[in-house]
Simulated scan of single mutants.
Amino acid sequence: MKIIAMIPARYAATRFPAKLMQPLGDKTVIRHTYDNTVATGLFDEVMVVTDSDVIYKEITGHGGKAKMSIRSHESGSDRIAEAVADMDVDIVVNVQGDEPFVRKEPLEKLLSVFRGGEGRQVQVGSLVQVLKEQRFIDDPNYVKVALDKNNNALFFSRSVIPYRRDAAAGVTYYEHIGVYAFRKQALLQFTAWPMSPLEAVEKIECLRYLENGIPMRMVVTTYMGVEIDTPEDLERAAKLLS
């Protein structure tokens, strides 16, 4: 089974423009993400896919692999699908460019759901972690996900889900971590569908799978670090790095 990691990297992020090129310690955010993904040793190939000459040169200038997108894309999955369309590959892992603290153990756990008899039925998987601080639970920049008893995603939202109507009831809040794994055909199928209504409202691309009836197997993992969405996140990441 050939497994590759693709890192979609858009320069003009809406909330924090040029965030992937921000310095974090002795490297840029995107180089931390790339180098740490390579360092896991889990992949036959790791590549950044970008619309930016600046990001392309940042990766290739330091000995990494990168590819320029041919077309403009609404989502990272669309960007990756274009890049892998003609590649001989079984599983594609999408590591978001703003995840500089990538570690081996969560990715290894994610890939394991595709193996074995039951794993042959899994088309798409992703990672979640438990959210405990109320400020993060309330923050729309943190995408929440509700799970069924088999750890399949029921719904993703920037709102607080589930809503705690009964104050005495126990509840676990899960944050969706922007790391996906797809069978190649599932990824190509994703790009053939138009943007779905809930995806358009929430601006959460994986809702397109749920709205088209494709289950997403979620893997609960421990803390992966800080996803860089805002300047405040970058400050938190710098403290974590030090």
Rank of each mutant, 00 (worst) to 15 (best):
I3F: 00
I4Y: 13
I4P: 13
I7W: 05
Y11H: 15
A12L: 15
A13Q: 14
F16M: 08
F16K: 04
A18T: 14
L20S: 06
M21T: 15
P23R: 04
L24E: 15
D26V: 10
K27D: 11
T28A: 10
V29W: 01
H32K: 07
T33W: 09
D35N: 13
V38A: 06
G41M: 00
G41P: 08
M47Q: 05
M47E: 07
V48C: 00
I55K: 01
H62C: 13
I70D: 05
S72G: 10
E74P: 14
S75W: 02
S75T: 14
G76Q: 02
D78A: 15
R79K: 13
R79E: 14
I80G: 14
I80C: 12
D86P: 13
D86F: 09
D88K: 02
V92A: 01
Q96P: 03
Q96V: 05
D98P: 07
E99R: 05
E99T: 08
P100V: 06
F101I: 13
F101M: 14
K104Y: 12
E105T: 15
P106G: 14
F114Y: 03
F114I: 14
R115P: 06
G117L: 03
G119K: 01
V122P: 13
Q123A: 15
Q123I: 08
G125H: 02
S126L: 03
E133C: 11
E133L: 12
R135A: 14
D138G: 11
D138F: 13
D139M: 09
D139Q: 08
P140C: 10
N141C: 12
Y142G: 14
V143G: 10
V143F: 00
K144W: 00
A146Q: 12
A146I: 11
D148S: 05
K149S: 13
N151R: 07
L154C: 04
F155S: 12
F156T: 03
S157L: 02
I161R: 07
R165C: 11
T172R: 02
T172G: 07
Y173L: 07
I177Q: 03
F182A: 12
F182C: 13
F182S: 12
K184M: 04
A186E: 07
L187R: 02
Q189S: 15
F190W: 01
F190M: 05
T191C: 09
T191N: 08
S196R: 06
P197L: 10
L198E: 11
E199N: 05
E199Q: 07
A200Y: 00
E202N: 02
K203L: 02
I204M: 00
I204T: 01
E205S: 10
L207E: 02
R208D: 06
P215G: 09
P215S: 07
V219G: 12
T221P: 15
Y223H: 14
M224D: 11
V226D: 03
P231Q: 03
P231I: 03
D233Q: 00
D233K: 01
L234K: 03
L234A: 03
R236G: 02
A237F: 05
A238H: 06
A238D: 10
L240T: 11
L240N: 10
L241R: 08
